[in-house]
Simulated scan of single mutants.
Amino acid sequence: MTDELRGLLREGAEAHLPDRARMLARVERGTAPRPRNGERVRVLSWPKIALATLATAGTLTVSALAVVTAVQAPEPPRNPTAAAPTAAAPSSADRPAPPTEGSRTENGPLWADGSVDPHSNTYWAQSNVTLKARKPLTSLVVELRIALTEGVRDTGSWRTRPAADFDLSARREGGFLVYRWTLKPGRTVPSGEHVFAGQYDHAPGGRDAKDDTYRIEAATAAAEGGAAVWGGFA
């Protein structure tokens, strides 16, 4: 410690009301290095030194927080798709079961039979419902249900009766491709044999028709009530 610095400190201690700022300024002047050979020396004041120190400490604090945050961040799931719910594949239990009431191919004035047309091939098939009416029919509904096995798709239909006599629909219902012919009011189906057929594509290879069914409901002009027949294609 130089004699000049000692003097400055002694003056500050003897003062009645010490002036801190004034004392710091004197100390700064006393400790500042002396320029040599015209060299200019840049001296940081104590407030600047303090600010620089705080800035350095703040930078270190932010860096430390960033490191802690990176360490504590939760890891992403290793297999994000493992927890995702997957849609259950449709099972055979979702498909409607064939009728449990068996087959009834003859009732009143009606007789019917179901068969797969012999001209069906590896990619396409035609299912025929043959109806024999012993009396003229004043109302008639013929329904053909083709189970939606792989690749089944409607490609058309036909009947031996005039198309203008029937309303036709072909749609998917409850696991089946359903063809439905409904006799229009005021029209009549004469006695005799009539054929109603549905045509459809299917997956390559032989197709099992065991779940396919048909049903016919009809009535005559006589007050004897309606009649119904049904069956399969096995």
Rank of each mutant, 00 (worst) to 15 (best):
R42D: 03
L54P: 00
V68K: 04
P35M: 02
N37L: 03
A13S: 05
P33W: 03
R22Y: 00
L54Q: 13
A52H: 11
T59S: 15
S63M: 14
L51S: 14
I49R: 15
I49H: 10
L44M: 07
R36K: 10
E11K: 09
L54C: 13
N37A: 06
R10P: 03
A55K: 15
S45W: 01
L9Y: 02
L9D: 00
P18F: 07
L17V: 06
R26N: 07
G30C: 06
H16L: 15
G58A: 15
R10F: 02
N37H: 09
R40D: 11
E11L: 14
I49Q: 15
S45T: 14
V43A: 01
R42M: 09
A57F: 08
L65W: 08
V62A: 13
R10T: 02
R10Q: 04
T56R: 15
L17A: 06
T61P: 02
R20L: 10
L17E: 05
V41W: 05
A15K: 11
V41N: 00
E28P: 01
V27W: 01
R40K: 13
P33N: 06
G58P: 00
R34L: 05
R10W: 00
A55C: 12
E28D: 03
L24E: 05
T31L: 15
R40A: 12
A52Y: 08
A50V: 08
P35C: 00
R40E: 05
A66W: 07
A57G: 08
T59N: 14
E28Y: 03
K48V: 08
A32E: 06
T31G: 04
A32N: 06
E14T: 06
H16I: 12
A15R: 06
H16P: 10
M23S: 04
R22S: 02
